[in-house]
Design a protein around this nucleic acid. Structure first.
Lengths: 296, 296
DNA sequence: GGCTTCTGGACAAGAGCTTGACAACTCGCG
DNA sequence: CGCGAGTTGTCAAGCTCTTGTCCAGAAGCC
């Protein structure tokens, strides 16, 4: 499925039939594509970009103006995720919820298998897994779901997500280091975020739950990533480490994700707050890092 | 089918159609091949390497950049492996340690892939993963390994083990419920134990880290397992819950695993102590439950 | 001894990058 | 109809990055 790796502009040109100059022009003028950059500054495109260029061309040959065609191509992209027909996301979600809450691992795995055969990882995350995790969290807070159910479900989802994560350290794109704040055990959102970045061509170094800040510092020195992301669900986790974060943000582009980032605790720390859902934030990060480039 | 001896670079070049200079360049730049060396320092390749070079060439002719093609070839390696040479467990373990401690996820995954093509899950656990985890724990205590290395390595190992665990709830065998004691975050040993039981035909219901005892109780009621296992590395975790365990042991065959079970805290609780290594204990549990049969 | 291989660096061709310009085209309007 | 203004595909110059190839001297192998 995402077996294809990233493409450089020449190859995208060949596959889409659009000259490199024009591809760059479309990017500059309409933001049609927003490729990740390699360490050397080369544009790296994903297979999804090939499709987007195709849509653009189709609209052009329908007689639309370039600006118009680009706008449509960009929107089509969003619609695409909203309408994978055949499968009704909420139905699948209910199905999954039912399986997980009945402690029925085989059935839950089967649902994942069936889904992955039809949709992209991103759709899986955005339409099924993340909404389900939210729902489960809410129900747990209301006392409608037991700790047992929450534990069981998390374990299975974690296993599947980590399975999808295989090989996410590989490739040419920019590198992101991902870790949970000290004391934080909720890692599923962070893994989802990593998968979303991966789908856009990034390389991921994943440290997991409850990581001391020094840990992130060490990796930053060794791998010089384009971005380090710390994640946490509660502000209490964040408060005590803000000074450390400020120091780290001095030498390393830094972001904090999850609900912990929501209330302006980070305001003058130099770290970016990513309090939205993982997929949206991955898209945002793309834009920022793409624009800003690397601070040497 | 294998048995083929090793190849020197000239021979590999002839078979793969890639010049020796280029093969060396690919090794240096992308780590595509990692040949063992003769005593004199000559590179010695296996037939599997021929295949890998072929994959690389195919990706190149698909128009991918060399660096990207190499990355994919390294991952694709997973799918079809021909002849993974003689595998000496300690050598592999060192290799794995090296990859994990260098934060090199792709290489670590490749090592797992190569291993799994030849050995059973049980061998993988017993000869490589568990010893490595022990070693890492020791080094970490001595200060020879950093927290970052420990986190990174755990994440990858956890991902792989959970991947192997897929579908372990399926089947007809006796059911075991597995959970970590409250507050306990070390789940790798428990997962390994689950895999060992699975290899013997059990069904596993896995609850994961930091599980309240009530959680286990709830599942026991709903699934009526043949055994429930709680795991922890330190006795401190165990002490406070002994009364609860005693109560639970009244209606449910119960065991406690990990170092926490070592000192006679459990003596009169009715719970079985499993303080040895996961695989040996899985074998022991088989014998016990096999003998005793199912209570009603 | 003759052929192969090793290391490490160097090199050149080609692909890509950015900035800025430019000509063909479309379109609204007097 | 002709004209200015905006749109859009293409091009160029000067640099950087990537990648296949080459070299020289030392050493291995049969």
């Amino acid at each position: 499925m995402d077996g294809d790796g990233v493409l450089r502009i020449g190859e995208l040109s060949k596959r889409s039939g659009v000259s490199p100059e024009l591809l760059r022009a479309w990017e500059r003028r309409y933001g049609l594509l927003r490729p990740v950059r390699s360490t050397g500054g080369l544009r790296l495109y994903t297979p999804a970009d090939v499709e987007r260029v195709r849509v653009m061309r189709r609209h052009l040959s329908d007689g639309l103006a370039a600006a118009e065609a680009a706008a449509l191509a960009l929107r089509a992209d969003a619609d695409d995720q909203a309408a994978p027909t055949a499968l009704r996301p909420d139905a699948v979600r209910d199905d999954l919820a039912d399986a997980l809450e009945g402690f029925d691992e085989p059935r839950a795995q089967a649902i994942f298998d069936r889904l992955l055969a039809v949709v992209t990882v991103e759709t899986l995350l955005g339409d099924v897994v993340l909404p389900y995790l939210h729902e489960l969290g809410d129900r747990w807070q209301r006392g409608d779901a037991s700790v047992a159910q929450e534990h069981f479900a998390s374990s299975i989802v974690r296993g599947r997500l980590l399975g999808l994560a295989r090989g996410w350290g590989l490739g040419l794109g920019p590198t992101a280091v991902l870790a949970c704040l000290p004391g934080e055990q909720h890692d599923l959102g962070l893994i989802a975020f990593g998968l979303a970045l991966r789908a856009r061509g990034w390389r991921i170094v994943y440290l997991g739950a409850d990581s001391p800040i020094e840990t992130v510092e060490e990796i930053s020195r060794r791998r010089d990533p384009s971005l380090a992301v710390l994640s946490g669900v509660s502000g209490e986790r964040l408060q005590p480490v803000v000074p450390q974060l400020r120091a780290l943000a001095g030498r390393q582009r830094l972001a904090v994700g999850g609900a912990a980032a929501a209330n302006g605790v980070l305001d003058d720390s130099g770290a970016l707050a990513l309090s939205g859902d993982p997929i949206a934030e991955a898209a945002r990060v793309m834009a920022l890092v793409g624009d800003g480039g690397e601070p040497s």
